[in-house]
Design a protein around this nucleic acid. Structure first.
Lengths: 158, 158
DNA sequence: TCATATCATTGGTGGTTCCAACGTTGGCTT
DNA sequence: AAGCCAACGTTGGAACCACCAATGATATGA
């Protein structure tokens, strides 16, 4: 009959790995459902953001910057190209490479997603003050940087 | 030529959702590879921990406590039962339910996983001081609690 | 030149999180 | 008592993310 507010086990409740995981699940939920409404998904934003900030790049570089596996970059770029948000052209100076360029439509789409994502941050961090948000960013950045340092090439370059 | 330390786009670098995601990916990496060495995975630990802390429970309650979907509880319990770490028996007072009990072997296995997980927390939080870890826990707990409050039934009860 | 490394691409795996549907059973309402 | 609704376990499937291995083409450095 009754439910009675079933709390998680203490072991989990205090484990950073669990908390990070739960927070990530919630964040992922927000991202996928709101990006879906904009006909996008996480990988698309990452790639468009990298292109907008650093200019045209090869697929491998995009993967390195965004933490997306090379093979997944291929698929995501295919989707973006299908919607004319990016363009693939061969690199004349290195025939192994494609040079990926963001189109004007891609730029507009990115701007829109920027707004969507800003709202997501807002909702995600709603219970935190401005200072607390900065502190959270600081702490997580330290963890992520440390992870990168300890996991040399195999995890993000591909 | 060389790569040259390709940093992620600023939009991502400062977005809590991105940081949480990256941290979660790293944590997930640690959990799966080290639990795999102990012939376990994340769901197993969650379920065993709930059983150990709250005693025998129905599958639905386990799902509610651990944040695992009802249908995924079934699969994970099948695996645990196959290794004799839990036992399923019908609830005499409610024939819809199974009562799940942790076996002594399950208890031992859980103890072992406790150790593995403790080491994971240690590695994950390595760059943080004790106070910083507590602060991180505090901030993330607030976010997770807020998420739970705003997402009543649909996300954890099933 | 020859070995090594990088590139894009294909194809596949596994884990997590979810959803929809089913038949069974319990509880509640009337 | 009958009927309705809710909860239970289970099956089957979807989506996304993270990852790995291999291949053919190409570039680089010894």
């Amino acid at each position: 009959m009754m439910t009675g507010d079933q709390a998680p086990p203490m072991r989990l409740k205090c484990a950073p790995s669990w908390l990070i995981n739960q927070a990530s699940a919630h964040s992922h939920r927000l991202v996928t459902e709101r990006f879906a409404a904009a006909d996008a998904r996480g990988y698309h934003y990452r790639l468009l953001a990298a292109l907008a900030e650093f200019g045209p790049a090869s697929q491998a570089e995009l993967g390195r910057r965004t933490g997306v596996d090379r093979s997944d970059v291929v698929a995501a770029l295919n989707e973006l190209a299908g919607k004319k948000l990016i363009e693939r052209s061969p690199d004349p100076t290195d025939r192994r490479r494609n040079i990926i360029t963001i189109t004007p439509e891609g730029g507009h789409h990115l701007s829109h997603l920027d707004g969507v994502l800003a709202q997501i941050q807002e909702d995600l961090c709603a219970p935190l003050s401005h200072t607390e948000r900065e502190e959270l960013i600081r702490l997580l950045t330290r963890i992520v940087d440390h992870a990168r340092a300890r996991a040399p090439e195999s995890l993000l370059g591909k």
